[in-house]
Design a protein around this nucleic acid. Structure first.
Length: 504
RNA sequence: GGCCCCGUAGCUCAGUGGAUAGAGCGGCAGACUUCGAAUCUGCGUGCGGAGGUUCGACUCCUCCCGGGGCCA
């Protein structure tokens, strides 16, 4: 959903052109404030040269109140230069909306569940889980801001081989014995052993603390044990057959590349997929319109089988969405390490936060595309953190807060008399925000926000250096401009779970 | 062998059909008696390779090469 000032202009141009028009920002200033390629797209069907169509459109567009002048360029682009009145309208819209600007754009709100992290409570959260958390939470925040109702869920194993192994490892430690073969040996095992109580419960408490500190609030914590109770009810609902002493689900009929085993006939024990299906059913029965799973790239095989589960249960598979992010690799001494919680040679979320800080950690983990694998060199983390762009963006916010403190209750306005290039650029950047948010939400790609925020901070810093806000001949307008900038910076940072400080 | 992700500047990465492909880091040279210098200004012969689609391709299609992952 573009800003209203853009939508209005597009609608007027559509009326003139008789075809859909989308405006884009040219990279070069001499190509105008906005441009459209509508003449290029229309030329083939009209049998006229694109430039001729563009010339006619330019003459008509120049009559619009928002348009100062319209020019034809290149193969047939229409370049528009806008009036101060248009800028005032655009800025007024932002000031009116404040931090709500750019949000609440969905046509029909959905009840969405985002299941994320869901790491086994056999150790503290790793940086791999932290990426899941940072990415999943940013997607959830975007969906909320868009106008949906979102719940965050954490699913954890409280039964199974790894859990038993973890308990045995801690108990062996308490008795002063060696851990079992393939058991857990990390330092945190000793710390848990030194305290009373069930190791799994303690670990789970620790994980909850870590996630809260990481600014993620979960609405529900679901136990594997509880979900598995639904298995006997769900198996009869599926398309199954018996072969090789096993009951199979015919998932290959629903887009999976092969069928999945459900029940071992010899002892009636349930296999892993049976639990997956029971969980899918459980989620749908709780009334969600959309289920989102956030999984690492090593789980990409789950996509087809989870969608097959939804289909077999009679739900539209489109309502079940699996977001896959690429893995985090640990690099130490220039060499990649094989991360293993069991052996303890892994980097934990807590260590990353200790080295680079909470804001830099959240920023860093979400600022790369989720399709991009991340390397973390922990030795370099602190050094790099001092140069993290998050501080550049936060500084812009703090600077504005300082100006507004000094301004007291001075009046702010959207009306500028004469607009400098830096003021036009800053307003156009703010006008981009609703599009950035919508696209980031629809593509489940929150990394667009850090990138946008850097450009916004950049435009602000440049403006700041060339123009005084207070005690200038345009104080009210410039106060309006920086106030709008502050609101959009704060919202952008909030969407990725980073704080927007008033002082640094 | 099948499937998924990636190859863009020295390094880390943006850019899912538009004009002369961008930012951060690193490097060099400048700017504070003025609202916060954690800032600003200037300096850049790069899209792995080959075909194809299009008025127009980093972007879409096919094949090849290279890196990561899952399954067999």
């Amino acid at each position: 959903m573009p800003a209203r000032a853009i939508l209005t202009l597009e609608t007027e141009l559509e009326r003139l052109a008789g075809a859909p028009v989308t405006l884009e920002r040219p990279s070069r200033a001499e190509h105008g404030d906005y441009a459209t390629n509508v003449a290029l797209r229309l030329a083939p069907q009209n049998g006229k040269p694109p430039r001729e169509l563009a010339e006619q459109l330019a003459r008509e567009a120049a009559q619009l109140p928002a348009v100062e002048r319209a020019e034809v360029a290149g193969p047939g682009f229409l370049n528009l230069f806008l009036t101060p009145g248009w800028y005032a309208e655009a800025l007024g819209e932002i000031l009116e909306a404040g931090e709500r600007y750019g949000g609440a754009f969905v046509e029909t709100a959905e009840r969405v569940q985002v299941e994320m992290v869901s790491a086994n409570p056999t150790g503290p959260l790793t940086v791999g889980s932290a990426r899941n958390a940072a990415y999943g939470d940013a997607v959830a925040r975007l969906l909320e801001f868009a106008g949906n109702e979102v719940e965050r869920e954490y699913y954890f194993n409280d039964v199974g081989r790894q859990i038993e192994l973890f308990r045995e490892s801690v108990e062996a430690r308490r008795r002063g014995e060696e851990p079992p073969a393939e058991g857990y040996t990390g330092e945190y095992v000793a710390e848990i052993a030194a305290e009373p109580g069930d190791p799994v419960d303690r670990m789970l408490e620790e994980i909850k603390r870590e996630l809260e500190a990481f600014r993620i609030r979960f609405d529900s914590w679901v136990l594997q044990r509880d979900i598995e109770q639904g298995i006997p009810d769900v198996v009869p609902l599926l398309d199954t057959y018996e072969a090789e002493g096993t009951l199979w689900a015919r998932t290959s009929e629903h887009g999976d590349d092969k069928d999945r085993p459900l029940v071992r006939s010899s002892d009636g024990s349930y296999l892993y997929y049976a639990g997956d299906v029971a969980y899918v059913r459980n989620k749908f029965e709780r009334g969600f319109d959309r289920l989102i799973y956030v999984l690492g790239a090593d789980h990409h095989g789950y996509v087809a089988r989870l969608k097959a589960a939804a289909a077999m249960l009679g739900y539209d598979p489109e309502r079940l969405e699996v977001l896959i992010y690429q893995l985090v690799h640990i690099v130490e001494g220039g060499r990649a390490k094989q991360a293993s919680k069991r052996r303890g040679d892994v980097v934990f979320l807590g260590e990353l936060v200790d080295k680079i800080g909470m804001d830099a950690a959240r920023w860093y983990l979400v600022s790369r595309g989720h399709d991009q694998a991340i390397d973390i060199d922990v030795d370099l983390a602190r050094e790099r953190s001092e140069k993290n762009p998050v501080y550049y963006v936060q500084y812009a916010h703090a600077r504005i807060a300082g100006i507004l403190r000094n301004a007291g209750d001075a009046e702010a306005s959207a009306e500028g008399i004469e607009l400098a290039p830096e003021e036009r650029d800053l307003i156009k950047r703010l006008v981009e925000f609703p599009d950035v948010v919508r696209e980031a939400t629809e593509r489940r790609a929150p990394h667009a926000l850090p990138n946008y925020t850097i450009r916004l901070a950049d435009d602000f810093h440049r403006f700041y250096h060339r123009h005084r806000v207070l005690e200038s001949d345009q104080q009210a307008f410039r106060l309006g401009l920086v106030r709008a900038t502050k609101a959009v910076l704060a919202r952008s940072l909030d969407l990725i779970g980073v704080e927007a400080p008033d002082r640094m």
